[in-house]
Design a protein around this nucleic acid. Sequence first.
RNA 1: GGAGAGGUAUCGAAGCGGUCAUAACGAGGCGGUCUUGAAAACCGUUUGGUAGCAAUACCACAAGGGUUCGAAUCCCUUCCUCUCCGCCA
Length: 436
Amino acid sequence: MLDIKFICENKELVKENIKKKFKEEKLPLVDEAIRLYDEKRAAENRANELRANRNKVSKEIGVLMGKGLKEEAEKAKKLVTEQADELKLLSEKETELTAKLREVQMKIPNIVDKSVPVGKDDSENVEVEQFGEKTVPEFEIPYHTDIMALFDGIDKEAAGRVAGEGFYYLMGDIARMHSAVTAYARDFMINKGFCYCIPPFMIRSNVVTGVMSFEEMDAMMYKIEGEDLYLIGTSEHSMIGKFIDTITPEEKLPLTLTSYSPCFRKEKGAHGIEERGIYRIHQFEKQEMIVICRPEESMDWFNKMWGYSVELFRSLDIPVRTLECCTGDLADLKVKSYDVEAWSPKQQKYFEVCSCSNLGDAQARRLGIKVKGADGKKYLAHTLNNTVVAPPRMLIALLENNLTFDGEYYGVKIPKALQPYMGGTEFIKAKTKYKG
RNA sequence: GGAGAGGUAUCGAAGCGGUCAUAACGAGGCGGUCUUGAAAACCGUUUGGUAGCAAUACCACAAGGGUUCGAAUCCCUUCCUCUCCGCCA
């Protein structure tokens, strides 16, 4: 969300930015926002005049009553009552215009960073860098759920009966690996100086509407029946909610947090080949990182943060690459965003495992996340977030890239970094022989 | 879930429906006087937001409604915190 004053003063720039994102249909919103703002101010000014008058007269009435001049007081009362209707109408108009303006303002995209490549959609995203060898083994790699099945590690059928499509039971070594990955990711981030945090897994509707649009909410969030509560789609929701309408002293910045939570997503409208298996499901777990920092530091943090993701995956012997989202693929709130993608030897392509975003001050403006500077002046913080690891996808990458085959049994080499979290296990062997 | 108490600025804590209650009084912070220096003492200053070049005006006493010429104060709804009881990982 952009500052309305900024929109008024930089009309053309805001429009150019919209064009760069190939969202021409949003162009009229700019003029509409400016118009609403003017109207809102006009209503406010008139209402304030009336209020000032009312306050003044009311005070006088008090004095008159004190002196026992009842008749004079009654006269003054009439004066105020006459304006009451106009004031009431104006107040309603004020509220209405404020809400409308905010709605329009939220639809106007944030100014993207100069460095972001211009492109229409995700097909024009740009590879930044590759890390590690994209190896494809001699032997055949089964589909990830089939690998898990060979280890007696998954039961989607039972999950389907119990909870429906989009759930799984993870079992045995695979379940343990899942837990190991989250624990490892947690410690990895703690070692980077982040504060570990377990947030609420449900949030109120006012927090939900603060952090996402109605459409996003409808497509993602599960509501708890009979309560004003929603299951979180990512811990970022509760983590950023922690800072709504707060003023943080500058010396406490940057706030670097890493949070664990299960994530619940309806995934309304999601489909396609990649949706098979456990690539996209209704419930998964995730270790997340968020940073709240001074504006001049946000790009440094952005680079550090996606770097952490790369480092984490490399420490588990998984080849990755970093992909920059082009203007057209960038969500409205974002200034710049990188996806970190893991290599899939099975599909022989990369798939998204982390999404690192710099939101500039747009999210902070929307949610009132402020900083009090050393000089006492207040300003909006910059906010960033990134996935540390989301185990289902991480498991896919981990299994495929560390898979071995002896002609009969598949096995998985446990990367050194993960071994302490697996009770020292260096290798796990499939329970069932592979029959092709 | 039941019963009670409470929610006011950085913190503690006052605040008969009006008349210097943007909010006393403490404490803390900041600036200053005094001092060789420090402490003490004394003086001043110290909420957020909106509009405006500014003067200033308006809004906000958990949140939202209502009563009233006028609400921190009265009424209603909701939320939160604490204590006790019940239930339960």
